[in-house]
């Protein structure tokens, strides 16, 4: 009996410093991560009215850097530091990176429509009207980076705008993401042989 109580006591008292250490770590973290005030996103609808749609895991065999050229990107986001280059993964797809000297980074990824659906109904998402068949932005982080996912017919893209220390008034990251998503979707449909007007 005594030993059992002693073991409990020792184990629990070992945990106390750990608990306090954990709470200390969290003190510095900025935990507010709300969607920016209206104006950043043109029109939004509640995800509660959005339905899951069937999709596919197929990813079009198109190089993401072939979707938006340097000049096209510069027209939207200003001068680039260098040529667009492979920018890593985008959920199950692959992305192209556009790096501005500001510094801020935009990646344009081609994803499967299933991946688009996979995240569509996550909490904190906001739907965007007038972009593809469906589009949404995910709940932003403390840096207010933009993750915009858009789907049109059998193709889907994910645009990520990672914000650096820039002038907030000068660059509207949501506008950049939306414009690039529109262009990427249109080009992707053309390259996969679909009609963008259908």
């Amino acid at each position: 009996m005594f030993l059992r109580v002693a073991v409990y006591f020792v184990l629990l008292s070992c945990l106390l410093p750990v608990f306090s250490a954990c709470s200390a770590v969290r003190l510095d973290a900025q935990t507010q991560n709300t969607i920016p005030a209206s104006g950043s996103i043109e029109t939004t609808t509640d995800t509660a009215k959005v339905k899951y749609k069937t999709g596919s895991w197929t990813i079009p065999e198109v190089a993401p850097c072939a979707l938006i050229g340097k000049a096209e990107a510069e027209a939207v986001m200003g001068l680039l530091k260098n040529e667009p280059k492979p920018g890593g993964t985008a959920i199950d797809g692959t992305a192209c990176a556009y790096i501005s000297p500001e510094p801020f980074v935009v990646t344009v990824g081609i994803i499967s429509t299933n991946s688009f659906e996979l995240r569509k109904l996550d909490s904190g998402n906001r739907m965007i009207n007038n972009l593809g068949d469906e589009a949404y932005v995910t709940n932003p982080n403390a840096f207010e980076d933009v993750y915009l996912l858009a789907r049109q017919e059998n193709v889907a893209v994910m645009i990520n705008v990672t914000a650096g220390a820039w002038d907030e008034e000068k660059v509207e990251r949501y506008r950049i993401a939306k414009t690039l998503a529109q262009t990427a979707l249109a080009h992707l449909l053309l390259k996969t042989g679909e009609n963008p007007d259908s």
């Binding site: 750990v18 969290r26 510095d28």
Partner: peptide, 20 residues
């Protein structure tokens, strides 16, 4: 046990600037 608590707290802090 401390690690489990620490790891769980990092999940709770998703989306914050803590990690940067």
């Amino acid at each position: 046990a401390g690690w489990l608590i620490y790891a769980a707290e990092t999940v709770a802090d998703r989306g914050t600037d803590r990690f940067v």
